[in-house]
Simulated assay, not measured.
Amino acid sequence: MTSVQNPVPETTHALNVAIVPDSFKGSARASEVAAAMAEGFAKGAASRACEVEITAVPFADGGEGTLEALIDVWGTEAIEVQTTDALGRRVLSRLGLSADQQIAIVEAAEAAGLPQVSDVARQPLDATTYGLGALVAHALDLGVSQIILCLGGSATTDGGTGLLSALGAKFVDANGDQLPAGGGALENLASIDISELDPRAATVQWQIACDVTNPLLGAKGAAAIFGPQKGASQAQVEHLDGALGQLAEVLEDATGRVLREQPGMGAAGGLALSLGSYFDVELVPGWELVAKVLGAHEILDGADVVLTGEGRLDSQSLDGKVVSGVLAASGPGCDVIVIAGSVDLDDAQLEESGILAAYSIAPGPATLSELSTDALALVQRTAFSVARTYLRK
């Protein structure tokens, strides 16, 4: 957390400014964006002779970038772990650890993400969360009492069976043979052997950050909604939906827990299904989970004006992302201003959302590469202009 204060006469009432941006993915970490916004706004306020008290906190929505946002605030470094990607190839991934070493933050995208397998044709039936399980196992080795698992950006639709396999579970067919990795093989699932399942996984507190409300199966389920972006054809979508249905049946028979209709269970290819069947897990909206860890509600509730932002402000930003969380958590009468790489909301959408104003950092015609290269300088410059415009002498 960064605090910046401009020295001005004590008789002037200080404006309380909260800065809580997401990362500009592919361009800058949330901590860098927060610092750039704070510096730009502080300079703009000084030029207007206005007293401001700025609290800047890097933020995330529980998906990609959450690990970086939390370790930046915790003041810790990411821990590298040798594991495998969604196609089983060796890869070096990361997990985060809180300052007291009791909370581990694990991102699905770190060991089961689409970017890691973008160099080959997508394999939706075979992609596995097994490598993610290695990150979880390492967190358990570190002796943590809580694991925050961030869904989002996965290349998988395996119902979390790969993760549970890495922790010792065996998913077998009617002949007792262990199934190959991936969601496609689950159509042949007959039973699950948990005799060697790591007992430590039942002793930690599980929180799963999820920013969608899709159920596991059906027209709004994991395969139908998210399968195509992972490379699944219509036939493969139907295959995966049936396979996840079979997994749900076997898990329900084994544990008595019926989770298929629970909101959010369709996120990241049903990743939480296997975990939630055997362990007590809490699915939390990503924004809410991060807000609780960072104490963001207290920061936002006391703010007169909030600056937030992300790489692209569009309709998705208003549905479970950082911007929507900021709008929901800001106190009454607080002005919310967005700084983004691009703004793809019209005036009516902005007004209806409650956003006071939205600014693009683009100074003119520019390519995405150009904006990415200069993102932080442009964010700072835009925040300076926002302060100059918003504040009065």
Rank of each mutant, 00 (worst) to 15 (best):
S317Q: 09
F279D: 00
R257W: 03
I337M: 10
A303H: 12
L179V: 04
G270K: 04
G320F: 05
K43P: 00
A169K: 04
K292T: 15
V52T: 11
P115C: 08
A202P: 00
G162L: 02
E64C: 06
C334S: 12
S385P: 00
A42V: 06
S165H: 12
G256Q: 06
A362I: 06
A248F: 00
N214F: 11
P263M: 10
I148P: 00
I54D: 11
T161R: 01
A109W: 03
L217D: 12
L125C: 13
D314A: 10
T389F: 14
G40K: 11
G131T: 10
I337C: 05
P58D: 10
G311I: 12
G286D: 08
K220F: 14
T203H: 05
V379T: 07
V338H: 06
I355W: 10
Q102S: 14
A45D: 09
L289G: 10
G159I: 06
A377Y: 00
L244N: 09
Y359V: 03
A248Q: 02
E252A: 15
L327K: 04
S23L: 11
A112L: 02
A127L: 04
W206C: 03
N6H: 03
A348Y: 05
E53I: 03
Q146T: 15
R260A: 15
T213W: 04
A174T: 13
K220L: 14
V73W: 05
G266N: 07
N6K: 00
E80T: 14
G264H: 08
G96Y: 02
N175S: 14
E370C: 01
K220W: 03
G333E: 06
G143S: 09
M1A: 13
C50L: 11
A358R: 05
D72S: 15
D72T: 07
G295V: 13
V284H: 01
Y359G: 02
D198V: 03
A329G: 01
D304A: 12
V237R: 07
A86E: 03
E249W: 01
G270A: 08
R89N: 13
I339Y: 06
S118C: 02
S315E: 13
L217I: 08
G333N: 07
F279H: 08
G311K: 05
G270V: 03
V33K: 05
M1P: 13
A219H: 13
D177T: 09
A134Y: 05
Q205R: 14
S324A: 15
A383K: 10
A99D: 08
A362L: 03
S274L: 01
E80Q: 14
N175A: 15
L149D: 10
P7A: 12
Q123S: 14
V57D: 02
S93C: 11
Q380M: 14
V386E: 03
E64Y: 05
P180F: 01
L371H: 07
L240R: 05
A329Q: 07
Q207Y: 01
L135C: 05
I71G: 00
A109F: 02
G168E: 09
G264F: 06
A377N: 07
I355A: 06
S330A: 15
N6C: 08
G218Q: 08
A108P: 01
I192D: 08
L300A: 13
A328N: 12
L368D: 13
A268H: 03
T367H: 04
R89S: 09
L251N: 06
S145E: 13
D280W: 00
D335P: 00
Q102H: 12
V281F: 00
L189D: 07
G309Y: 08
E298I: 02
C150P: 12
